[in-house]
Amino acid sequence: MILLRRIWDHDLAWSFRRSPVTVVAAALTVICVGAALLAPWASPQDPFDMAALNLSDAFTPPAWEDKGMASYPLGTDNQGRDILSTIMHGARISLGVGIAAVLFALVLGVSLGLLSGYLGGRVDAVIMRIADVQLSFPAILIALLIDGFARVALPGDRHDELAIPVLVLAIGFAGWVQYARTVRGSTMVEKEKEYVQAARVIGRRPLAIMLSHVLPNVTGPVLVIGTIHIATAIITEATLSFLGVGVPATRPSLGTLIRIGNEFLYSGEWWITVFPGLALVVLVLSVNLLGDWLRDALNPKLR
């Protein structure tokens, strides 16, 4: 109870309550994430269970249209899969890939940024030049390259089961630079502060100082970048999947669903692509809004 009270009174909680847009975004995010997490239990149908599919129900429009059926609220696709169920399962994959990719980028970027900023000199020069070079390629291109490389390197039958880890690595690797740069900058500021010098006077080793002193003081901006990056990563994954190099069609993400539906858009079955698209927009927009709020709330100048 006391803990709840303290959370409620916290500055972050206060600025959260004051921003209706943020509250709506958070609610949408919770709904999206909840639906995705609970998909195996809550979705009306298991779209991956071939036995449960009924091909004769293919191309059913949404329930409110003329030929709609109540059991398929958002209609079905060409194989008779319930769109709502595929969206829930797809969001699960999209979110999973997005979050995992961000975690990978974050750990890699923060570590390299810390090393670069704290050690300086040659280590810094090498890491930052790599970052510069990488920044001159679009992220999607880097992800494509890595994904393409993995396709060639891995035997065909292994590829499908490794598709998702490869995707995570590809998207994550394409995104580490911004963490590294931010953390490097803050680290260079923090390492000049006297508390770091005090730890050096005691005789603590550089690695210990980096992890126990500097790291806790440079995580604020990382949190903000991470949140916004989740949205970007989901989009990147969707783009890759839309291009057909992402997750396989047997376990479709939102991007795959949009690609599949795209073929039917001009033949009148708009719902197959529009609803996954909408879901993607809502998910990305609300995560982005949360990230924006977090950035402002953590910025003492705007408080």
């Binding site: 502060k193 006297e194 508390y195 010098q197 730890a199 006077v201 005691i202």
Partner: peptide, 27 residues
């Protein structure tokens, strides 16, 4: 040992006072 000028920068803002003072003892 050393005492620094800036009382705002010489203590790690994320550490409790107990941990700050205990760091030399532990180390």
């Amino acid at each position: 040992q050393m005492i620094f000028q800036d009382p705002y920068a010489s203590l790690n803002p994320r550490w409790r006072v107990h941990d700050i003072v205990a760091e030399p003892i532990r180390f």
